[in-house]
Design a protein around this nucleic acid. Structure first.
Length: 193
DNA sequence: TATAAGATTTACT
DNA sequence: GTAAATCTTATAT
């Protein structure tokens, strides 16, 4: 389990990259599942047109992003998919990191059950799939990541820096010039274990 | 109160 | 490659 100050790091890009290779765990309804994070995107606050909090748009939904770092931000996209974010930075600075992909490590049978299909390379690639695989829904919005239902831990998985790729974010074409920012991090190194 | 659009996934052609 | 599924949120009447 990572310490709370980890999430208070002020460099959301550093955290997004550093989270690659960490393990995201959930214990929901007494079902324990984990996956190694393989893809993230950073959303860098009020000056980031792709962020929900762009231009200091403080609403009921985005209020969670203004919390002190270390809590979850879960919201519904396209009416179907739950997207799971990690809120970072200090109170009133709405930075967050979207978890876009994991590699299942613990509870694979439960993950297959939730996903309704068998393990494959793409089973948990895509933010909606990640949430479904780990059982995350709107009930898990605004939860502490140092609590007992959702957390991130460091299992000592080493990722070679040359295996981490950087590029533009996905699905944010509306963000104009900010859509091109290299705020997405992912690894193609699936040789965990 | 009503409307439009969205940090997507899936199945089908 | 295209389209359908599906509902909350933000913004405008």
């Amino acid at each position: 389990m990572l310490k709370a100050f980890y999430y208070l790091n002020k460099d959301v890009l550093f955290l997004a990259e550093d989270l690659i290779g960490k393990t995201l765990c959930t214990n929901i309804n007494n079902i324990f599942t984990c996956g190694i994070i393989t893809e993230t995107e950073a959303y860098a606050g009020v000056n980031d047109k792709a962020s929900h909090a762009y231009n200091d748009r403080r609403t009921n939904r985005t209020e969670i992003m203004y919390s002190k770092g270390g809590v979850s931000y879960v919201y519904l996209c396209y009416g179907i998919h739950h997207l799971f974010n990690i809120v970072t930075n200090a109170k009133d600075i709405p930075h967050a990191i979207l978890i876009r992909a994991i590699y299942p490590s613990i509870g694979i049978e439960e993950i297959e059950e939730r996903r309704g299909r068998k393990l494959s390379k793409n089973l948990c690639v895509g933010p909606g799939k990640v949430s479904q695989a780990l059982g995350i829904n709107l009930l898990h919005n605004n939860l502490s990541l140092t609590g007992k239902e959702i957390w991130v831990q460091d299992d000592g998985v080493k990722i070679n820096p040359s295996d981490i790729q950087v590029g533009p974010r996905i699905g944010v074409d509306y963000a104009e010039e900010d859509a091109k920012l290299p705020y997405r991090f992912w690894t193609t190194n699936y040789d965990f274990k």
